[in-house]
Each structure stands twice: as structure tokens, then as C-alpha cells.
Amino acid sequence: MRIKVLSNIYPPAEDSWQTAELLRWVVSNYIGNKALRIIDVGSGTGILTLAALEEVVSRGGTAWVLSIDHDINASVSTRMNLVDNGLYQYADVVTANLLDPVKAEFHVDIIVSNPPYLPGNWHEDWRIFGGPHGIEITVQIIHWVCRDGASIVILTQSSLSNWDEVVHYMGMCGFKLTIIKATHYFFEDIITMVFERTV
């Protein structure tokens, strides 16, 4: 995977690679006769979009990924990296707020996001701060998931945020936590969770 990072874009870090690892695992276990529909919310450099597509293509499957980021530079970075890795034909890249551009009741197989999750003011640094409790951006994603649906949702959070509330909210929407991976880095644990719809 070749990644170029434009200025002011969140570069792939430990949380990015951990999210990509679980995404690859999910994709490898759900490739079948149908084309997978995947949404990458907060695409940044496009690393998660690339990870999903590389996994699908390497296994002879078919997929379409919608990569969304609110920052035009992130969208440009995602497009550039898709082209450089020969995967542009499998994805659409849009600049928008979270899942706003997705039509109501549009069902997808997988939603993946490594959103800003540290407690803090989103407007001070939108790349890392997810709101006062760290989960406000994630909760907006969950509201869409509850309303319009996906079969599997992959979310990454921090032990510094109220990540257990994410589990609670997802449970209220009919999702169960099936996989969790936590890795300790410096002052926090990075927690990536895979939820599967039960109803």
C-alpha cells in the first residue's frame, strides 16, 4: 500500500493500522457471491478504503466503497492514494459531513470509521477531538446506523473517551459487540470494536 499524506491531514497512525487490521478480517470473512457495499466515514488519507479494497481484490471478490470526509484535502488525498494503488475504479469519494450524503434507507454491508475520539473541542483540532466526551462525532454516526442500517459497524475509540457508551448505544440499536481489540499506547488504550446487527 502506497500512501501519500497531504498537509493538515491525519497521517496513518497506530489507530489507523489497528482499524485496518480488523476491517481486513471482517472483509475476508464476508466476501461472497455479492459485491460488498462499504462506507468509510472520515476517510483521511483513504487508508481504510484501501485496506478494504486490497483485501477484496486479492481474494477475487467485488466491492464498492464510498469514502466520505468533511475536509476537501482529505478527499483529494484519498483520491490520489486510490489512483496510486490502482483502486480508484472501486470507490467514490465525496466531501461532506459524516453520512449526510447517503440516501435514507440505503443499506450497506460495512460501515467503518476511525473518527476523532479524544475529549476536546472539535473546532480546535477536528483531526483528533471528538467533542467534550470524545464520542460526540461517533454518536452522530451511530444515529445514522440506527436509522438506516448496516450489517456490520467497525468503530475505533480511546480509553480516554466514554467508549463504553458507544457499546451501550449500539446495543440499543440492535447491534452486539462481537470483536474488540485494545492496544495500549503511551497514555491511553486504542479500542477497535466490531458490531454485528442482531435484529
Rank of each mutant, 00 (worst) to 15 (best):
H184R: 11
A150Q: 06
D148S: 07
F195P: 00
I154Q: 04
G171T: 07
Q157W: 11
G130I: 00
Y169V: 09
E105Y: 13
Y117N: 04
M170P: 02
Y185Q: 15
L160A: 03
I142W: 00
I191D: 09
I142K: 09
G131I: 04
Q157Y: 09
T192M: 02
I152M: 02
G174F: 04
F129N: 01
I190H: 09
N114Y: 11
Y117V: 02
M172I: 14
M172E: 11
I152P: 01
V153C: 09
W144C: 03
V153N: 06
P132G: 06
T192C: 03
H168A: 11
G131S: 02
Q140V: 07
W144T: 01
Q140D: 11
P115Q: 09
A150M: 08
R147Y: 08
T138E: 09
I190F: 01
I190D: 00
V108C: 00
E124K: 10
L155G: 00
K176M: 13
G174H: 03
T156K: 13
I128T: 06
I152R: 11
V166Q: 10
D125W: 06
P115R: 11
R147P: 14
M193Q: 05
G130C: 00
T192L: 08
I137T: 04
C146E: 10
C146W: 11
F187K: 08
I154E: 01
N162T: 12
D109N: 08
G134P: 15
F106Q: 07
D189N: 13
L118W: 08
H143P: 15
D189M: 04
F195C: 08
F106H: 06
K103S: 09
V112M: 05
G120D: 01
S113P: 12
E124C: 02
K181T: 13
E165I: 03
H168N: 15
H107T: 12
N114G: 06
Q157V: 08
S151Q: 14
E136K: 04
I111H: 05
E188C: 00
Y185R: 14
P116M: 05
V108N: 04
I137E: 07
K176G: 11
G131D: 01
K103D: 14
F195E: 05
Y185H: 12
R127G: 03
E124L: 04
T183I: 15
T156W: 08
P119K: 06
W126H: 11
G131Y: 00
G134L: 05
I152Q: 03
N162E: 13
V194C: 02
S161N: 10
D189H: 15
F175E: 01
G134M: 05
V194I: 10
D189C: 05
C173D: 00
H184Q: 15
H107K: 14
D109V: 07
C173I: 02
A104K: 12
N121F: 11
